[in-house]
Nucleic acid binder design. Structure first.
Length: 409
RNA sequence: GGAGGGGUGCCCGAGUGGUUAAAGGGAGCAGACUGUAAAUCUGCCGGCGAUUGCCUACAAAGGUUCGAAUCCUUUCCCCUCCA
């Protein structure tokens, strides 16, 4: 069987490693406990985080033991890496709430039974640290001079960096040490922006324990233009189905740029690489098949086969004009009575969330971007009544591909 | 603690008394073209209402003025240099 390291490398996850050969060897000869950190800065993971989840799944499948560390302690401080300025501080309640939500999500993707995987919150050891004690035990091992030369602080030195944030690196390093002590965790993985934080932990463990541990970073999920993937006008693409519906998730990937298809297939699905390459090399309109597969496979991983099928079916129905079975299109239920009098189109658009304000709705109608059952609307005073509904359903469309269904109840 | 500089719309960034809902760029949205792609072109891009209107907005709160993002005062925050 191929080494996971090779698998990860072939699929394009790996960006940097501390000791390529040693890591490979280690992964070959034993079941390795490794960790990845997640910051509870929101109450759901988003598409960008999913690279990390995918890696965990790959690793777990290969018999290694993942630890997902929820940064309930580190979030109290905030990671300055990659930020141009200090981010707003979250309250303790927010952090706790987010941490609980993330924990629940992560446990859906990695197997926690029989100690095969672990989810742990670093608040457990960080929040009650004694300052003096911490400085003496941990702080001594960090050279400020060296930290300042780290790339991640450089940008912040121009804009200003608070002492609070400066400590983030120590805390994350300490995490690694704790995990090494508690679980014999020997490998830390993370996004490429975590490189210096990871190195800090490795150094610390060497100094405190005289042990060699390793680090590895992966690519951030970006488009071919180098922009972060997973962001849209309405915000991030979330894993939580209440924040981003399976249909929208599906559509997001379905609409991915040609140049990104192969990369996304490798990173976000478990399809064999030969298949990934084959699909990625399709040209012209053919590549749409690859996009469909990508969208389907990924939705399946995140939300399960059933949701993936529903999303695919809905998408196909809508885009091939067979307006049946739009079951999974985002929909809103509204009371039938309201439509006996009639509801203005602008209100309807806003209520369904298709537009964020009536002004936007007006604008879109003016530009010809709103459709009712595939008929372009020109009249912004249009009143929708029960007559517009077929079987108590009405399909609204914004632009080419954003649909929303209204159901009468 | 002292001296100086600064805080503008999603982001970057012009604007130093009126014609500024605020140049320009990026992002985003819509239209055309396409393959539910990219590139390109066109339009839009605070809210409410509608045939030229109203409200909210240039860190916050006050003030000067017919009129302020622009001037003054206070507060908060950030940066640079000195301690």
């Amino acid at each position: 069987m191929a080494n996971v390291f090779d698998i990860l490398k072939e699929r394009g996850y790996i960006e940097q490693t501390t000791h390529e050969e040693e890591i490979k060897e280690l992964l070959e000869k034993e079941s390795v406990t490794f960790y990845i950190g997640f910051d509870p800065t929101a109450d759901s993971l988003h598409l960008g985080h999913f690279i990390q989840i995918m890696v965990m799944m790959h690793m777990q499948r290969a018999g290694h033991r993942p630890i997902a560390v929820i940064g309930g302690g580190t979030a109290m401080v905030g990671d300055p890496t990659g930020k141009t300025e200090m981010r707003k501080m979250l309250t303790e309640e927010e952090i706790n709430k987010n941490a609980a939500a993330l924990e629940k999500q992560i446990s859906k993707f990695i197997d926690l039974d029989d100690d095969k995987g672990i989810v742990v919150n670093n608040a457990l050891w960080l929040r009650n640290l004694n300052y003096i004690h911490f400085l003496r035990e941990i702080g001594v091992h960090f050279s400020v001079n060296r930290m300042l030369t780290a790339e991640c602080f450089k940008t912040r030195l121009e804009k200003g960096l608070s002492f609070l944030e400066f400590n983030y690196m120590l805390m994350q390093s300490y995490d690694f040490l704790e995990l090494y002590r508690r679980y014999n965790c020997k490998l830390q993985l993370g996004g490429n922006d975590q490189w210096s934080n990871i190195l800090g932990g490795i150094d610390l463990i060497r100094r405190k324990e005289g042990a060699s541990v390793y680090g590895l970073t992966f690519r951030l999920l970006t488009t071919s233009e180098g922009k972060k993937m997973g962001k849209t006008e309405s915000g991030a693409i979330w894993i939580d189905p209440d924040k981003t519906s399976p249909y929208d998730l599906y559509q997001y990937l379905r609409n991915i740029g040609d140049a990104d298809v192969e990369k996304a297939l490798a990173l976000l699905t478990f399809l064999p690489m030969e298949e990934v390459k084959r699909l990625g090399s399709l040209e012209g309109a053919e590549i749409n098949k690859a996009k469909e597969i990508l969208a389907y496979e990924f939705t399946k991983i995140v939300h399960g086969e059933e949701e993936a099928k529903k999303a695919q079916k809905a998408a196909r129905a809508l885009f091939s004009n067979e307006a049946e079975d739009a079951a999974s299109v985002p929909s809103t239920e509204m009371e039938k009575e309201r439509f006996t009098k009639g509801v203005g189109i602008l209100d309807l658009l806003t209520e369904t969330g298709l537009t964020s304000s009536k002004s936007e709705g007006r604008r879109l109608i003016k530009q010809g971007g709103i459709y009712l059952e595939d008929e372009r609307i020109n009249d912004m005073d249009l009143i929708i009544t029960t007559k517009n509904f077929k079987d108590n359903k009405l399909l609204l469309r914004r632009g080419k591909k954003i649909y929303h269904q209204i159901e009468l109840v």
